[in-house]
Protein backbone atom coordinates (compact mmCIF):
# COMPACT_ATOMS: atom_id res chain seq x y z
CA UNK A 1 0.00 0.00 0.00
CA UNK A 2 1.19 3.54 -0.69
CA UNK A 3 2.24 5.69 2.24
CA UNK A 4 0.02 8.62 2.91
CA UNK A 5 -2.96 10.22 4.54
CA UNK A 6 -6.52 9.07 4.15
CA UNK A 7 -8.98 11.79 3.15
CA UNK A 8 -12.63 11.52 4.08
CA UNK A 9 -14.65 13.92 1.93
CA UNK A 10 -18.26 14.40 2.96
CA UNK A 11 -20.75 15.97 0.58
CA UNK A 12 -23.14 18.70 1.65
CA UNK A 13 -25.93 16.28 0.87
CA UNK A 14 -24.59 13.64 3.19
CA UNK A 15 -23.90 16.20 5.93
CA UNK A 16 -27.42 17.61 5.73
CA UNK A 17 -28.78 14.21 6.78
CA UNK A 18 -26.58 14.01 9.87
CA UNK A 19 -27.22 15.45 13.33
CA UNK A 20 -24.65 17.76 14.92
CA UNK A 21 -23.60 15.00 17.27
CA UNK A 22 -23.15 12.49 14.41
CA UNK A 23 -20.96 14.95 12.52
CA UNK A 24 -18.79 15.68 15.55
CA UNK A 25 -18.42 11.99 16.41
CA UNK A 26 -17.51 11.06 12.84
CA UNK A 27 -14.94 13.87 12.63
CA UNK A 28 -13.27 12.94 15.91
CA UNK A 29 -13.27 9.21 15.12
CA UNK A 30 -11.65 9.93 11.75
CA UNK A 31 -9.10 12.30 13.24
CA UNK A 32 -8.17 9.80 15.96
CA UNK A 33 -7.31 7.35 13.17
CA UNK A 34 -5.09 9.88 11.44
CA UNK A 35 -7.61 10.83 8.73
CA UNK A 36 -8.13 14.29 7.30
CA UNK A 37 -11.82 15.18 6.96
CA UNK A 38 -13.09 17.54 4.28
CA UNK A 39 -16.63 18.87 4.67
CA UNK A 40 -18.24 20.29 1.55
CA UNK A 41 -20.37 22.41 3.87
CA UNK A 42 -18.70 23.43 7.11
CA UNK A 43 -20.00 23.21 10.66
CA UNK A 44 -21.97 26.13 12.12
CA UNK A 45 -20.17 28.21 14.77
CA UNK A 46 -22.19 26.45 17.49
CA UNK A 47 -21.21 23.03 16.12
CA UNK A 48 -17.58 24.14 15.98
CA UNK A 49 -17.83 25.13 19.63
CA UNK A 50 -19.17 21.68 20.51
CA UNK A 51 -16.44 20.03 18.44
CA UNK A 52 -13.88 22.08 20.34
CA UNK A 53 -15.27 21.01 23.72
CA UNK A 54 -15.38 17.35 22.67
CA UNK A 55 -11.79 17.68 21.39
CA UNK A 56 -10.65 19.08 24.75
CA UNK A 57 -12.18 16.11 26.57
CA UNK A 58 -10.31 13.67 24.34
CA UNK A 59 -6.88 15.26 24.46
CA UNK A 60 -4.49 12.97 26.32
CA UNK A 61 -1.00 14.27 27.07
CA UNK A 62 1.42 12.08 25.13
CA UNK A 63 -1.40 10.82 22.88
CA UNK A 64 -4.03 12.83 21.05
CA UNK A 65 -3.14 16.52 21.14
CA UNK A 66 -6.00 18.12 19.27
CA UNK A 67 -7.20 19.20 15.86
CA UNK A 68 -6.37 21.64 13.14
CA UNK A 69 -9.50 23.11 11.59
CA UNK A 70 -9.68 25.54 8.71
CA UNK A 71 -12.15 27.21 6.43
CA UNK A 72 -11.95 30.27 4.19
CA UNK A 73 -12.15 33.23 6.51
CA UNK A 74 -15.35 34.82 5.32
CA UNK A 75 -14.86 38.11 7.11
CA UNK A 76 -13.41 41.18 5.48
CA UNK A 77 -13.90 42.74 2.10
CA UNK A 78 -17.66 42.43 2.47
CA UNK A 79 -18.34 45.70 4.16
CA UNK A 80 -21.47 47.67 3.59
CA UNK A 81 -25.09 47.03 2.87
CA UNK A 82 -24.69 44.93 -0.29
CA UNK A 83 -21.85 42.96 1.17
CA UNK A 84 -24.07 42.03 4.09
CA UNK A 85 -27.10 41.38 1.92
CA UNK A 86 -25.37 38.99 -0.42
CA UNK A 87 -22.90 37.51 1.99
CA UNK A 88 -23.13 33.75 1.91
CA UNK A 89 -23.79 31.90 5.11
CA UNK A 90 -20.45 31.23 6.81
CA UNK A 91 -21.28 27.60 7.36
CA UNK A 92 -21.72 27.00 3.65
CA UNK A 93 -17.98 27.12 3.08
CA UNK A 94 -15.77 24.11 2.75
CA UNK A 95 -14.01 23.04 5.92
CA UNK A 96 -10.99 20.81 6.53
CA UNK A 97 -10.21 19.14 9.85
CA UNK A 98 -7.29 16.90 10.76
CA UNK A 99 -5.02 15.75 13.59
CA UNK A 100 -2.85 18.68 14.69
CA UNK A 101 0.36 16.66 14.46
CA UNK A 102 -0.38 15.71 10.84
CA UNK A 103 -2.07 18.73 9.30
CA UNK A 104 -0.28 22.09 9.17
CA UNK A 105 -1.56 25.27 7.61
CA UNK A 106 1.05 26.87 5.38
CA UNK A 107 -0.95 29.88 4.31
CA UNK A 108 -4.35 31.32 4.86
CA UNK A 109 -5.92 33.77 2.44
CA UNK A 110 -9.45 34.92 1.95
CA UNK A 111 -10.00 32.58 -0.99
CA UNK A 112 -7.13 30.13 -0.77
CA UNK A 113 -5.84 27.80 1.92
CA UNK A 114 -2.61 25.86 1.60
CA UNK A 115 -2.00 23.00 3.99
CA UNK A 116 0.56 20.28 4.44
CA UNK A 117 -0.53 16.82 5.50
CA UNK A 118 1.81 14.08 6.68
CA UNK A 119 1.23 10.41 7.41
CA UNK A 120 0.73 9.31 11.00
CA UNK A 121 3.95 8.49 12.85
Amino acid sequence: MIQGVQLDMLSADRLSKMTSYEKIRLILDDVHQGCVVVLERGLTPEEQGKLLEATMMEIAPGGFSGIEIETYPSFGGEKGFFGKLFKKDDSSRMMVIGPVDQLKMLSREKDRLIAWASAAQ
Binding site: T44, P45, Q48, G49, I69, E70, T71, S74, D90
Partner: peptide
Amino acid sequence: MHVNIMMIGIIEA
Protein backbone atom coordinates in the same frame (compact mmCIF):
# COMPACT_ATOMS: atom_id res chain seq x y z
CA MET B 1 -6.42 31.96 12.79
CA HIS B 2 -9.42 29.70 12.69
CA VAL B 3 -10.13 29.88 16.40
CA ASN B 4 -10.77 33.63 16.05
CA ILE B 5 -13.10 33.17 13.10
CA MET B 6 -14.93 30.48 15.07
CA MET B 7 -15.23 32.47 18.30
CA ILE B 8 -16.41 35.64 16.56
CA GLY B 9 -18.90 33.41 14.69
CA ILE B 10 -20.23 32.01 17.98
CA ILE B 11 -20.39 35.49 19.54
CA GLU B 12 -22.34 36.75 16.50
CA ALA B 13 -24.66 33.73 16.50
